[in-house]
Write a protein that binds this DNA or RNA. Sequence first.
DNA 1: TCAGCTATGTCAGTATCCTGACATGGCTCA
DNA 2: TGAGCCATGTCAGGATACTGACATAGCTGA
Lengths: 147, 147
Amino acid sequence: MSQGEMLGPVDSAVGYVLKQVTVALRNSMDVALRPLHLTVSQYACLELLGQRPGLSNAELARGAFVTRQSMNVVLRGLEDRGLVTRPATALRGRELPTVLTDTGRAHLRTASVTIREIEKKMCAGLTPAQQEELLAALATCVRNLAP
Amino acid sequence: MSQGEMLGPVDSAVGYVLKQVTVALRNSMDVALRPLHLTVSQYACLELLGQRPGLSNAELARGAFVTRQSMNVVLRGLEDRGLVTRPATALRGRELPTVLTDTGRAHLRTASVTIREIEKKMCAGLTPAQQEELLAALATCVRNLAP
DNA sequence: TCAGCTATGTCAGTATCCTGACATGGCTCA
DNA sequence: TGAGCCATGTCAGGATACTGACATAGCTGA
């Protein structure tokens, strides 16, 4: 059992292997982002803001699959370090549109490169067509599970 | 933005979609297991024990992708409810081989059926061949990320 | 034989994320 | 116009998982 690790029925369950990949990916991202002093949540936040500037806290939370409360503390951390900025007062409703600072953009650039390398490494051995199919299959899974 | 939800580059990143599926699957499992008074971690533990009886705490932890400490509290909960049993004293080394009780086996059976239905629903629209390819692609990803 | 290494179970403290709740601002419809 | 409803930001409390540390049991090699 120690290393022979015969594969049982669990290893043929999609959910199990899915979890396996997610954990491995998260760990890899974690160690890769540590030198940049960024958590995975913080990176996700920066990436979202880089692609869609002006997102509110709630929108960022949905995009990063966490609650508004969790995203709020992430944003505070990034704000304290000067990576993002939020207006002191809301222009429309209660939304506080967040944008990257120059420092934030710089951090995002290096982090983004690192993460893309990890994804590349993860998908090594898969042909572009297979990657497309993987992406499509996963998208189908998401759709099927949507309430 | 509220619902139009144009898809940006994040949606073409494997890691992002992967996270999306994982979250959706976890939520589905969560609500499905709630009537059975089981958490996802507890179910994972039962499933592992059902397939490989006599697993130790550390082995279960590795199988469920959590630490020994976390699995220990899970195990205590299951033990208090009479779903699993551990010998009071170790036979070999410090390992305490855990096994399912009859009640535990019964719980596992109903939970297992429920979860399999969710996986079935998730993979609806994918041909058996596509499911195989999905599984193979994910396995490749795991291998590529292994340290 | 025995020192060194590894693995296991467990305790304590911490971090992270979530649920519940509240007040506020905007929208809709009678 | 105004009541009802939804969304947002935020505060407080609790659940869950993790890191760090320790003692113990077994294996390995000098």
